[in-house]
């Protein structure tokens, strides 16, 4: 009962607050929310694929998606840089920190 009341209060407040926004005047075009949810979806897909493809591929995919959704259109900066960062992090974690990455 108490949990239900808390969930209801949270949902109502979230709905009202999200439309108004904490800092911005309004929610703006719906596509901004779509970009955000697209990143969440790509990150989820990368996580599903991570046990098969490995951390490097999964993290690289998340990095590239983030760069592209943040508006980077140059292939070197939008694709190559995130892939290089994912590579450095993978090598550093595996050989430097001895983390058994997937």
């Amino acid at each position: 009962m108490a949990l239900g009341a808390l969930a209801l209060a949270l949902v109502i407040r979230l709905g009202l607050g999200f439309m108004r926004g904490a800092t911005d005047a309004s929610i703006g075009p719906g596509r901004r929310l779509a970009w955000t949810l697209a990143l969440a979806l790509v990150s989820g897909l990368a996580l599903v694929a991570m046990p098969v493809l490995g951390y490097f591929a999964g993290a690289g995919l998340v990095g590239v998606a983030t760069a592209l959704l943040l508006g980077e259109r140059r292939p070197v900066l939008g694709v190559l840089v995130p892939v290089v960062i994912a590579g450095i992090v993978t090598l550093g974690a595996r050989w430097g920190l001895h983390i058994p990455l997937p």
Binding site: S43, A59, G60, V62, G63, V64, T66, A67, L70, G71, E72, L77, G78, V81, P82, I85, A86, V89
Partner: peptide, 11 residues
């Protein structure tokens, strides 16, 4: 941000 936040997501 487009050069910084991909690294944040990976980390």
């Amino acid at each position: 941000p487009q050069h910084l936040f991909p690294a944040i997501a990976i980390l």
